[in-house]
Design a protein around this nucleic acid. Structure first.
Length: 854
RNA sequence: GCCCGGGUGGUGAAAUGGCAGACACUAGGGACUUAAAAUCCCUUGCCUGAAAAGGCGUGCGGGUUCGAGUCCCGCCCCGGGCACCA
């Protein structure tokens, strides 16, 4: 059972074995309680029109090696793949060509599938999923409804990029230098009604549980920074002009409260209008307008010079009653803390810069031990009334506690993490399973379906009318996308779905989810209400937030996956993908997973126990691969010229998996030659087994030792994802086999087994020709024998004062005395110790003897 | 500015604190060949030397250690991420 070629003809061998695997369903994963499971997950690709990028096969080859290796170690391996297929490019293509995004997406998937199959990955294709398939996004919508029911989804006005010329909302990547990518028209920020997910409710757990996962430290640090927990205090400042009114600020430095000489509120702060005195109104309004017109980019660009205006109002410092001027400045942002700060110019760089610029007083309250201001270090308090003399950490607690006692403040924890903007004004995404109804209808629905609704109704108000969000009954899912006339946004800021009146405006049965266009008469029955569908769609993240759960039971029609499947397969044992997802995808997925955990649906609190990032492969020029640079390498080209086994091996031999490394086409020849050499050593010119390979042959002790060392090293390296050194070891073994006049056939078979996870096609072919039964994939991984590796002799290195002065083979177990005697007798060592006093001898048995002399 | 990585031959890279440069690539020389390709052998960090051998060498400067690419301190450079976060 092999091909008939006589030389290493990868063009014949590779398709042959790919067909074999496909016919035999070699990689189908079936739950088997008798076997331990191992779930290897790749970050599933977005099927772009450009096809596979060389970065895809890098990570996918790594996981494929691991998956194939684990199978031979007796694990029941789940290694699935699918498509993250909603998203902007397909929509843009649809706008341009008028073809349905689904058609374009299917074309791209077909192409991706062809490319991925050509790489010979051991995916279980029976589990293929596609996030745009209604049978899949039915459950994405279902999870949304769980979030909605638990009060974790709400509606709010949020700023988005708006292009007046195109009359459409733009994504960040569609805005280049303040202009639309298409057409180059100016863009502006505009508030639109958006769905928002309350990820901040999980901030504490998302942070704490990072301690439980085996992830790269850098990724954990990035998530920590993104969550941005800081402890401090909220402090209420009284307002001079309005008795009883207060201004709430957040600070991490309540210990510096006596050094507060002014306050700053964000331009968007709701109190700006009421605080500002009439004389300052014009100036403040002008400043606010200017700040609002600025993009985030401009606002940070202008950060070099602080700007701001005085409101004319004063606050009262709760700790000492001093009168503090209130300013408006855009270096304070509304989205963090309370949108207002107490400024302590002596101990904060930004406040200091601002105080200098506007000649505001600077009062030092922490002893800097002579260091210049601004001083942000620790120290004892000065100029701080009864707190003077306290160490700062103690002062923080005392001042906060004292303020709390008087109702003027409290200890708080703040997060940089914001709630997640979860809607897009686009066509090509999951529709929200939500219908908006009137207050009256909501009340009647609430009377009978209370358990399906959140504790607090989700509402928005427009043109004086308040709309209430009602979920579709889960049994009525999926809510499919209607076909539309145009994929262009409606022009009002709503998605193209807003133009589909018959889909949008409806009579809605809240018991069954049934819908009838509003243009038709209202059907009979108490459960029918007048509604309008949500026109937003979900972002691409939605589908990728839970796909790893669907893989365990991809065809389940009663749940996201059956509880038995979730129990057996659980979550991925290893997850491999790019570091570009370090924050967003990996944080969003953790959030959803925790919600599902709280619902009792998944058995663990964390989705990805072990995570690994493959490094980026750069172009030959050392730059990031990109179309515009023209340095993109396609896997197809290499497969055509050298075969996929060579490509796989080369990708892994380039360097450590996690490293960023440039593509170097010359190196491909090296690994290709390695495969040809293996073929030549094992197979004769006529295609039969080479005469030097026989069951009758006895391997030399050295070759036997090397073989067992190689079994050990290759296995260990695969477990640790150090594929480059595993390949080096195989090269060393093959070089030795080449030099041996004859080898035992079992040695050849073991070599083929070691090679199989890396270069599976040639391995299958050789295995078959060497007389192996069925597939090399079914042969258990060879075991090494420790006693075959142990040798009776070791080389001991002689050093004098740490410098290498020769070496000598000695029997294992040689004592320090014997070694020292040998060293003294050595012609190379002797001159360095002659006439010198030996101060000390360092002896590492079997390794090194270091003689320290005067 | 802050937070992560990283800096080793002509190149990609190896190296539990213990012989720096494994394994490859490139280049040079040789064998085989009418010739070329393929294949095989030798050389390939720098300096001195015919050789044996010796000296120097892992971005720079210090330190710890019998011994440092590896650990510590201070710099420089490159890459990535975040950034007025109170």
């Amino acid at each position: 059972m092999a091909t008939t070629c006589t030389d290493y003809n990868f063009r014949e061998i590779e398709p042959f074995w790919q067909t074999f695997w496909e016919k035999n369903h070699s990689f189908r994963a079936t739950a088997d309680p008798a076997k331990p499971k191992y779930y290897v997950l790749d970050m599933f690709p977005y099927p772009s029109g450009a096809g596979l990028h060389i970065g895809h096969p890098e990570g996918y080859t790594a996981t494929d090696i691991l998956a194939r290796y684990k199978r031979t170690r007796g694990f029941n391996v789940l290694h699935p793949i699918g498509w993250d297929a909603f998203g902007l490019p397909a929509e843009q293509h649809a706008v341009k060509t008028g073809t349905h995004p689904a058609a374009n997406t299917q074309n791209n998937i077909t192409n991706f599938k062809r490319q991925i199959k050509a790489l010979g990955f051991s995916y279980d294709w029976d589990r293929e999923i596609d996030t745009t398939d209604p049978r899949y996004f039915r459950w994405t919508q279902w999870i949304f409804l769980q979030l909605f029911r638990r009060g974790l989804a709400y509606v709010d006005e949020r700023p988005v990029w708006w292009c007046p010329e195109l009359r459409t909302v733009l994504a960040n990547e569609e805005v280049v230098d303040g202009r639309s990518e298409v057409g180059g028209f100016p863009v502006e920020r505009r508030n639109l009604r958006q769905w928002v997910l309350r990820i901040t409710a999980y901030a504490e757990r998302l942070l704490a549980d990072l301690a439980e996962v085996d992830w790269p430290e850098s990724t954990k640090r990035m998530q920590e920074a993104w969550i941005g927990r800081s402890e401090g205090a909220e402090i209420l400042f009284g307002l001079e002009h309005a008795a009883g009114a207060t201004l709430k600020i957040f600070t991490t430095r309540p210990d510096t409260l006596f050094g507060c000489t002014y306050m700053v509120i964000a331009p968007e702060h709701p109190l700006v209008a009421t605080l500002t005195v009439p004389e300052q109104k014009a100036e403040v309004d002008a400043y606010r307008r200017k700040a609002a017109a600025k993009s985030d980019l401009e606002r940070t660009d202008l950060a070099k010079e602080k700007s701001g205006v005085f409101t004319g109002a004063y606050a009262i410092n709760p700790v000492n009653g001093s009168r503090v001027p209130i300013w408006v400045a855009d270096y304070v942002v509304m989205g963090y803390g309370t949108g207002a700060i107490m400024a302590v110019p002596a101990h904060d760089g930004r406040d200091h810069e601002f105080a200098i610029r506007f000649s505001l007083p600077i009062v030092q309250v922490i002893d800097s031990d002579g260091a210049p201001l601004p001083y942000v270090g620790d120290g004892r308090l000065i100029n701080s009334g009864t707190y003077t003399g306290l160490p700062w950490s103690e002062a923080k607690q005392r001042i906060t506690a004292d303020l709390a006692g008087r109702g003027a403040g409290q200890a708080t924890v703040n997060y940089k993490l914001r709630d997640w903007l979860f809607s897009r004004q686009r066509y090509w995404g999951e529709p929200f399973p939500i219908v908006w109804v009137s207050a009256g209808d909501y009340a009647s629905i609430s009377a009978v379906r209370r358990d399906k609704l959140p504790d607090q109704p989700v509402t928005f108000t427009q043109d004086g009318a308040t709309h209430y969000a009602v979920p579709l009954p889960p049994e009525s899912l999926p809510l499919q996308l209607p076909s539309v006339q145009s994929y262009l946004p409606s022009g009002t800021g709503e998605s193209p779905l807003a133009n589909e009146t018959n889909w949008l405006e409806l009579w809605f049965n809240f018991e069954t989810g049934a819908a009838v266009p509003a243009s038709q008469p209202k059907p009979a029955g108490a459960a029918w209400v007048r509604g309008r569908r949500e026109t937003n769609t979900m972002p691409q993240w939605a589908g990728s937030c839970w796909y790893y759960l669907r893989f365990v039971d991809p065809r389940c029609e009663t749940a996201i996956a059956s509880s038995e499947s979730l129990k057996y397969w659980g979550t991925p044992d290893i997850y491999v993908g790019g570091a570009e997802h370090a924050v967003l995808h990996l944080l969003y997925a953790r959030f959803w997973h925790k919600v599902l955990f709280d619902l009792g649906i998944v058995p663990t609190a964390e989705p990805f126990r072990k995570l690994f990032h493959q490094g980026i492969i750069l172009g030959e020029d050392g730059e990031k691969m990109s179309k515009s640079r023209g340095n993109v390498v396609s896997p197809d080209t290499i497969i055509e010229s050298h075969g996929t086994d060579t490509l796989r091996l080369y990708l892994m031999f380039l360097g450590p998996l996690e490293a960023m490394k440039p593509w170097n086409p010359r190196g491909i020849e090296g690994v290709h030659r390695f495969l040809q050499k293996i073929w030549r050593e094992l197979i004769a010119l006529d295609g039969s087994v080479n005469a030097k390979v026989s069951r009758a042959n006895q391997d030399s002790a050295e070759l036997t030792k090397l073989l067992h060392e190689s079994i050990k090293k290759v296995g260990e390296d695969i477990e640790n994802l150090r594929f480059n050194t595993a390949i080096s070891q195989m090269m060393i073994l093959v070089n030795a086999i080449q030099k041996a006049p004859t080898i035992n056939i079992e040695t050849a078979q073991v070599l083929v087994q070691l090679l199989a996870p890396f270069a599976p096609h040639i391995a299958e072919e050789l295995w078959s020709r060497l007389g192996g039964s069925q597939s090399v994939m079914l042969a258990p991984w060879p075991a090494y024998q420790a006693e075959k590796i142990a040798s009776s002799e070791v080389k001991i290195v002689f050093q004098v004062n740490g410098k290498h002065r020769g070496d000598q083979p000695v029997p294992v177990g040689t004592t320090q005395e014997t070694a020292l005697a040998l060293a003294k007798a050595s012609a190379r060592v002797a001159p360095y110790i002659e006439g010198k006093v030996i101060k000390r001898v360092i002896f590492v048995p079997g390794k090194i003897l270091n003689i320290v002399v005067e």
